[in-house]
Every structure is written in structure tokens, then in C-alpha cells.
Simulated scan of single mutants.
Amino acid sequence: MFSKLFTAAVLLFSFSMAFSQSDTGQKINTKLIKVNNKIYMLQGKGGNIGLSFGNDGIFMIDDQFAEHIEQIQEEIKTVSEKPVQFLVNTHFHADHTGANAVLAEAGTVIFSHDNVRVRLQEMIENEKKKIPQEILPMVTFSEDMTFYYNGEKIYVFHVHNAHTDGDALVYFTKSNVLHTGDVFFNGKYPYIDTANGGSIMGVINALEKAKLLINEETKIIPGHGEIGSYSDLQKTIDMLTNTYKKVTVQYINKKTEEEISQMKDITQLYDNEGYGNGFITTEAYLKMLYNEVAKERSYIEDNDEKNRKALEKIEQMKRERNEKQKN
């Protein structure tokens, strides 16, 4: 499973490389955007990178692909010549951890949730192509951790079974900037890695948890997409909740996965705003919702069946007791 996921990510990157270079072979474009104070977002061919610059050094969130790290480093040097001292991986996918080994060899200390290291270790063991051990985070945590760096408190916390089973969100408390990793795709349908512990309800719960920390002035660096706001986060929660409910109704009405994947009226409001133009198409998103609903309903239906059998057994015991009393 992990081998297939890693290979798919590499193939996706190779495809992007082929179609993103110019005829002259120029490097893929990167874009460094100031978010707030000394916090920046760096966009390229992978998940959005977060960067904190200051007197202590450089604090980095995610690092895209190894093939891209040289250009990323060049962008970073336009702001600071200091080294990247700390790196937080928001989850294990290759477009967020691919350059780990390069940075580790340069002296960067890598942090992540426990499950990120577990997933990466499994990749190393299962991949035919050799993956360097240096890709592994050096420090892991189970729930949360705090950095005091570049003049502010940086709160890193785990959200359970959201995009994956090892997601971390990073909140810069002074700058009021939140990096969500792939728990939040801004303006696009999300990819939820259900094969590796992700779930739509986990994503919704994670975003609700994030709302408790932030406010309407918070700027949000999403895993993919442009810089977001509190209202963008709320819009995504509403989108996920509404479409999930609609698919649930259709599932209860015995509609098949194929039938539901073609019901564009479920997502029409969001399709009109371009949500289906990203990596995840409308059809793929609806199929993911169907499978999530099927899992949830299977659990509910299984419990209902167990309760029905228990009630039947109780009724049988009552009848037997009544028969004994009569005799």
C-alpha cells in the first residue's frame, strides 16, 4: 500500500515536471509570498511551504520534493542567509517530505507526529528504489509541542484521522498565522488519504478544532491553494458537511457509487466556483464521499443488526421465563 502511494506521488511529480518546464528547460516556477510579519509561504510543485525568518534562524514547514530543493533554497536566501534550523512535516506524503534527507544532511532538525515517522519507515522498507534513512524525522510527538523561536510561540498540534493519521497543524501565535498542511485545501476539493487513516469526519473535526485557536484576522497557509482566511476555512467546513450529508441521503436511497459520482447537483454550488478544477475532480470527490458514507453506514447497520439480535434474545428469554412461571 505504501509502495503504491509513494510511487504514485513520484509519478505525479514527474508528470508535473514534464509539463511545467518551458521549451528552454528553465526551472519550475516558485513563488515566495509574505503572509504576515516575518512569516512567508513558498509555492512550487508540491504542498505549500511555511517559513519563519528571524534572529534565531529559519523555521520551515514541509519541503516539497528533493528535485526542487535547490530552487527552494535559492528563494529562501532572498530573505535570509541563515540556515534552516528546524523543519516540521505536517504529514508523510512525498510532496511535503521529499527534501527531508537533503535538509537533514545540511543540519536541519526534522520534527513530525509519531505516525509520520512510522509511515516513512515503512516506505523505506517496502520501496525497491532506495530511500535514504535521513528522510526520517529526528524528533516525534504524540499530541502537541511548542517552539519558542524567532520571538514568538509556535504551537504544533496533532489532529486525528484527518487527511492522514499523522497530521499536524502549526500556529504562529504572535504573527497569527496557521499552517494546516493538507487538512485544508483552499478553494478545491480535498484529497483525503483514507487508506492511511484519513477520514472526512476527521477533516471536519480538525478544522473545527483549528477554529478554536484562530480568529477572523488569522491568515492561513493551506496545504494547497492560495493564502486563506477564517471565512475560507468555514466555507470548506460547510462544503464538506453539506456534500457529505447529501451523499448520505442518496446512499440511504440505495444509489450506487457510479450513480452518485454523476450527481453533479450535489456539488453544483462549489463546481461553479472551480472546486473541481484541482487535483481532485468532482467525480473523484463524490466517489470518496460515497466510500466514506458506506463505511460509516456499514458500522451503523452492523450495530443495528447486533441490537436487533440482542432484543430478539431478550424477548425469547422473557417468553421462556413466562412459560416456566405458568408451569
Results as ranks from 00 to 15, higher is better:
residue 3 S to C: 01
residue 136 L to E: 06
residue 186 N to D: 11
residue 209 K to C: 03
residue 198 G to F: 00
residue 325 Q to N: 14
residue 120 L to C: 05
residue 150 N to P: 12
residue 97 T to W: 01
residue 87 L to H: 05
residue 190 P to K: 09
residue 166 G to R: 03
residue 129 K to R: 08
residue 250 Q to C: 09
residue 209 K to E: 07
residue 284 A to E: 13
residue 23 D to F: 11
residue 95 D to S: 08
residue 221 I to N: 06
residue 163 H to M: 04
residue 218 T to Q: 12
residue 77 K to Y: 15
residue 127 E to T: 12
residue 92 F to N: 02
residue 245 K to N: 10
residue 312 E to S: 12
residue 124 I to V: 15
residue 42 L to W: 00
residue 59 F to Y: 07
residue 293 V to F: 02
residue 277 N to A: 10
residue 310 A to R: 10
residue 44 G to Q: 05
residue 65 F to M: 10
residue 46 G to C: 09
residue 120 L to A: 03
residue 186 N to I: 07
residue 241 T to P: 02
residue 17 M to R: 14
residue 65 F to T: 03
residue 25 G to V: 13
residue 69 I to S: 15
residue 227 I to R: 11
residue 226 E to I: 15
residue 48 N to C: 11
residue 135 I to F: 04
residue 131 I to G: 06
residue 242 N to L: 07
residue 277 N to E: 14
residue 74 E to F: 12
residue 105 E to N: 11
residue 211 K to W: 00
residue 196 N to Q: 06
residue 34 K to L: 08
residue 54 G to C: 02
residue 234 Q to C: 11
residue 108 T to W: 00
residue 197 G to A: 11
residue 248 T to R: 05
residue 313 K to E: 09
residue 132 P to E: 09
residue 168 A to T: 08
residue 98 G to Y: 04
residue 265 D to T: 15
residue 229 S to I: 15
residue 141 F to Q: 08
residue 35 V to H: 01
residue 248 T to D: 08
residue 253 N to E: 12
residue 68 H to P: 05
residue 261 S to M: 06
residue 1 M to G: 09
residue 21 Q to M: 09
residue 121 Q to D: 13
residue 314 I to M: 04
residue 220 I to G: 02
residue 265 D to K: 01
residue 192 I to A: 06
residue 55 N to S: 13
residue 178 L to R: 00
residue 117 R to M: 11
residue 192 I to F: 01
residue 234 Q to G: 10
residue 54 G to P: 00
residue 28 I to T: 14
residue 6 F to W: 07
residue 190 P to H: 06
residue 133 Q to T: 08
residue 16 S to N: 12
residue 327 N to F: 13
residue 58 I to H: 00
residue 14 S to A: 07
residue 36 N to P: 01
residue 225 G to W: 07
residue 143 E to Y: 09
residue 305 E to I: 08
residue 155 Y to L: 06
residue 180 T to F: 03
residue 103 L to V: 07
residue 321 R to T: 13
residue 164 T to V: 12
residue 288 M to A: 05
residue 313 K to Q: 11
residue 151 G to M: 14
residue 123 M to K: 04
residue 59 F to E: 06
residue 9 A to L: 05
residue 269 L to H: 00
residue 150 N to H: 06
residue 137 P to C: 07
residue 311 L to C: 11
residue 317 M to Y: 08
residue 85 Q to D: 08
residue 290 Y to Q: 06
residue 213 L to E: 08
residue 321 R to N: 11
residue 237 I to S: 03
residue 3 S to K: 05
residue 261 S to K: 01
residue 94 A to P: 05
residue 53 F to H: 09
residue 63 D to I: 05
residue 305 E to F: 04
residue 294 A to E: 13
residue 161 N to F: 13
residue 250 Q to M: 13
residue 111 F to G: 03
residue 40 Y to M: 02
residue 40 Y to A: 04
residue 218 T to R: 04
residue 159 V to E: 08
residue 53 F to Y: 13
residue 128 K to Q: 07
residue 175 S to A: 15
residue 157 F to S: 09
residue 260 I to H: 01
